[in-house]
């Protein structure tokens, strides 16, 4: 579904990604794990068009989207839930969801998506008229994911959904991520620092270290890999 070939990105003179390649098959959950500064967020931002690639190619559903402006990439069905959630804090939950469906012109589909989001996150329905900035961290993450679902995405990129969330809610959110993938057939690229959790829900994984992919394989196997265990899984 998504194929990244030899992608490199730099911030001025500093190289952030040094030629990475990976591909994500339709219907799967693939995870990108790695420590701080490994280039995980940079990878997602480049795919969604917020950053420009220096070299390399990004193909989505067979189309080269490397040079497409970000708002046009969203229109292709590729949705990015950014790190730190980036909800619109002074807009209501309702308005945030409406923004997620900004490109949707089909009223029926919009109503259907709303219902679907509420079925996944009933909490959002309870908070519908509230300003998004007043939600708890977990609820804001639900809103960020819900907002992305409003636009009928085919492919969802989630950047650190567990960041800054009460531990109790983390498992709920990960259950929902799996549910979205299974019941709605949305392909997911998950970026996580919590490698244990990420490997548990994903089918395959790539390990990123200072802008390079150092390891890749099936999540099941990686979980028992001694080297990975020592570095990322806490022994």
């Amino acid at each position: 579904m998504l194929t990244v070939t030899d992608l490199s990105v730099s911030y001025g003179a500093i190289s952030a990604l040094g030629g990475i390649s990976f591909s994500i098959p339709q219907g799967s959950i693939v995870t990108l794990i790695g420590g701080n500064g490994a280039g995980k967020t940079t990878t997602l931002r480049t795919i969604s068009g917020l950053l420009r690639a220096k070299t390399g190619k990004i193909e989505f559903l067979g189309e080269d989207i490397t040079k497409l402006p970000a708002h046009k990439i969203v229109a292709r069905g590729l949705s990015h839930v950014p790190e730190g959630r980036m909800i619109f804090s002074n807009l209501t939950v309702d308005e945030n969801l409406a923004m997620g469906a900004y490109l949707l012109h089909d009223k029926e589909l919009l109503a259907k998506n709303r219902e679907y989001v509420f079925s996944v996150f009933p909490r959002l329905n309870e908070r519908i008229k509230q300003m998004a900035g007043t939600l708890s961290g977990g609820e804001q993450q639900m809103l960020a994911i819900g907002r992305a679902l409003m636009g009928s995405p085919k492919f969802l990129m989630l950047d650190e959904p567990s960041l800054g969330i009460a531990p109790r809610l983390i498992s709920t959110i990960f259950e929902k991520i799996v549910e979205i993938n299974r019941n709605h057939g949305i392909t997911i690229l998950l970026v996580e620092q919590n490698a244990n959790l990420a490997l548990e829900v994903s089918s395959s994984a790539y390990v990123l270290e200072t802008g390079r992919i150092v390891m890749q394989g099936e999540s099941k196997q990686l979980r028992t890999d001694p080297q990975l265990k020592a570095t990322y899984l806490g022994g």
Binding site: S48, G49, L50, A70, H71, V74, A75, S79, H80, P82, M86, I87, F88, M99, G100, Y102, L103, R147, G151
Partner: peptide, 8 residues
């Protein structure tokens, strides 16, 4: 930035 990600 978030607005761009909504397709705006």
């Amino acid at each position: 930035k978030a607005a761009i990600l909504m397709g705006v």
